[in-house]
Design a protein around this nucleic acid. Sequence first.
DNA 1: ATTACCACTTAGCATCTAGACC
DNA 2: GGTCTAGATGCTAAGTGGTAAT
Length: 573
Amino acid sequence: AKNCPLFVCNYLCLHPFIGFLFIRWEEEKYEDGVKWRFLEHSGPYFPPEYQPLPDNVHFYYDGKKVKLSLAAEEVALFFAQMLDHEYTTKKVFRENFFKDWRKEMTDAERSLIQDLGKCDFGEIHAMHKAKVEARKNMTKEEKQVLDEFGYCLLDHHRERIGNFKIEPPGLFRGRGEHPKQGMLKKRIQPEDIIINCSKEACIPVPPAGHRWKEVRHDNTVTWLVSWTENIQGSIKYIMLNANSKLKGEKDWEKYEVARKLKSCVDNIRSQYRSDLKSRQMSTRQRAVALYFIDKLALRAGNEKEEGETADTVGCCSLRVEHITLHEQMDGKEYVVEFDFLGKDSIRYYNKVPVIKKVFKNLKLFLENKQPGDELFDRLYTSMLNKHLSSLMPGLTAKVFRTYNASITLQEQLKELTNKSDSVAEKLLSYNRANRAVAILCNHQRAPPKTFDQSMATLQSKIDARKEQLALAKSGLKQAKKEAKAKGSSELVERKKAAVKRCEEQLLKMEIQATDREENKQIALGTSKLNYLDPRISVAWCKNMGLPVDKIYNKSQRDKFAWAIDMTEVDFEF
DNA sequence: ATTACCACTTAGCATCTAGACC
DNA sequence: GGTCTAGATGCTAAGTGGTAAT
């Protein structure tokens, strides 16, 4: 990251021995692949051990009181905690849970408890709810935990850690129709934990009576702690907060790659357009996939192991059943109708007119195939990315998402905003530009549970304000009349101001209502945090004379500190 | 060439909290 | 001063893509 602005920034740091001081990140002294030279931390925070149920709380099987062993009781509590959720009624969830629960039981328990339907967790559930209620009124000793575990020392700088807590045990709930939902996610012990820190650092002390699985000193990676999770067998990490230098630099690099794509995207587009006519079938498939990835901001779509995860797809893993071709639709030619579940089982539904060559190719790809067959049967993400990186160093499929998101924001902001707009109007326009990106990237959310109600509340406020405005207007009329008779205009001016104030407040609320309505099912956060070059937003703020905190909250400002510090008014993505 | 593994980003929902409102 | 709620923060699942192993 040679030209990264972070290198030339001075940081105000709290040094553990010296106190506050300015430190400059040293420049270019890292060998290739090395992420840090010194790393020290306290190790992870472990969630508290399981506390057995109080004597007055019981589990019942088939109407009879049963005292469970500690291990079985803990798992029963996990289930009871989730009873308010609809998914505890799902067949797969219940079966997976019951199977794993029985593994934790003693032989006697196992032979007794054979039917989940006969289990009564009612008292345990009630106790849990009471506990949640009680916790609300508790004071926070959280702060101490944060101080002890929340920070590390990285190359003389105190840095915030992102997730310093070990994930507590519980029942796995994947997203969508996950085949493993309900399985027991086991408690992580120090013996499962790999610690990564400097050789010269004080090695974190494991909890009393325990030892770490391993302590290593790998300065080519950024994680401090890792363990293997038992559901998918994947590795989990403790890493730095987004506002750290390590993450900030990566973020900056990401946007620089996307900006580089801007300069060669025209060539790449004409390249894949001509590839649509290639004699090689795999090249044609690559070209069509690239067309989708570029035009629709689809994800790459790596293959997934069947039965291990929910059935979701991305571009390269699309199946025949996920698209429908229409020669004509809604007065448009060559329309492709997409309907599939993407990341997090979020539905992607879109009807898109495409160019004729793409349409004809798709028709060809569909020939002699079953609904469950792969649309791009000769294409893999690895091939696609290899091809892309030959066109431009660092180019992969996901860069298109970043590029198209950022360029869309920049264009929309130009189109929608005027310097003469009011602050509320400017912010509405910003949100609309942000929204255009979120729609492009298909960032959806469930409508908030209180949505209808809060809209109604806002509407009644608007109505009340309207009445007030009418009142203020008639007051002004009256004052004007009196002024004519008396010749004094002071009252008129005051009434005028009142009307104006009222109108402004009304407009502000109406804008807020529009914004909220348009945002009902759309999540802006993901694109703001991961796809939009913050320098576009910072430059826009400077242009519009708005403080950045109108669009970025505290943690966003921290994360994007590098952009806020360095961006000039004339920044172009 | 293919697969397994690893490290890291991206994602939506749950929970918490500050501050608006009474 | 208490309550309510929107927005902030936390949590962890689910992707992407590089590299090592086979």
